[in-house]
Simulated assay, not measured.
Amino acid sequence: MPHIQTFVAALSAACILTLPASLQAQPVLLGAATATLTGAQEVPPVDSPAIGQAAFRLWDDNGNRSIGYQIRIEGIDFGPATDGDPGTEPTEPLDATALHIHFAPPGENGPIQYGMLGPSHDVNGNVTFTQQTPDRWLIEGSWDVGDGNPGQPFADVNAAIAAILAVPPGEATPFYLNAHTVRNPMGEIRGQLIRLDIAQVPEPGALGLLALGLSVLALAQLRNGRSA
């Protein structure tokens, strides 16, 4: 009998080691945040036709933490800055020059902690820019360990995640997303990251729907405000 028990234990261990990836430990969702980008949130405010919406997810993958994001921006052209052609550098007023996460509360400007485009950008190169319509761009990627702006207090994504999780759901975090352009190099549109209740966050496969739904709502509200 002891030999049988030993054999069963060894077989069980072997089965665990050979489980397909889909059945092994999955990343744990720690939290989420969203941001609506407008020119009015810039300091000082900017009268901009551009608008945007972003969805962020905070992950723990077996001790490796990261912040995944999907950002939709309408009215800013990311093509010249991301096509890799030195002959098409940003020159038009609403051509993008940078896209960053900064550290500061609403109404204040702060230093760059992580960049998707421009100085202090993602060193892993896992950010993608996709033109969805003539006026709308989708930016997707992940802020991983080692990606942040060296020397800044929240350059380490672990510190950034801790700071976001320390904020109660529904309240503003100390981070904002800032899109920079040729005509407004200090910032064309900006959005403070607002922490979400994790119970309201959809399954991972629906993250795109979350960003799209928030984007449609935000665009409608902003347009109604401009036409009022």
Rank of each mutant, 00 (worst) to 15 (best):
F7G: 01
E171A: 11
L30R: 06
P49A: 05
D144H: 14
Q192T: 14
T88F: 05
Q221R: 11
M186A: 13
L177M: 09
D77A: 01
D95H: 10
G115Q: 05
A96R: 00
P204D: 06
P49Y: 06
G115H: 05
M1D: 15
R57H: 03
Q192W: 08
L94R: 08
D47I: 07
S22G: 03
G68N: 05
D77R: 02
R226I: 01
Q200G: 14
L11V: 09
I198S: 08
T88D: 12
D135C: 05
V201C: 03
G151S: 14
P119H: 13
H100R: 04
T82R: 00
D144L: 15
D85W: 01
L217C: 08
G84E: 03
C15L: 14
Q41S: 09
G187E: 04
Q26F: 03
Q53H: 12
T181K: 00
E89I: 06
F175C: 01
N124W: 11
A10N: 10
T128E: 15
G191W: 05
I161N: 00
Q192S: 07
I139L: 09
G170W: 07
R72H: 07
T133E: 11
G110N: 08
Q70C: 07
L99Y: 02
A220W: 09
N149R: 14
W137L: 03
L193T: 11
I73D: 01
G187P: 03
D95L: 01
R65L: 01
G148A: 09
L30T: 07
I164H: 02
H100G: 06
D197R: 06
A104I: 08
S48F: 03
A166Y: 09
N109I: 14
Y176G: 02
A218T: 12
P111K: 13
G52I: 07
V201W: 03
Q41T: 13
G187C: 06
Q132M: 12
F78P: 00
A35T: 13
A10H: 08
A218Y: 02
L17D: 12
I71V: 13
N126E: 13
L214R: 10
G118T: 11
S22A: 13
I101W: 10
L193P: 01
R65H: 13
T133H: 15
G63W: 13
P169M: 02
A35M: 09
V216R: 14
D147Y: 10
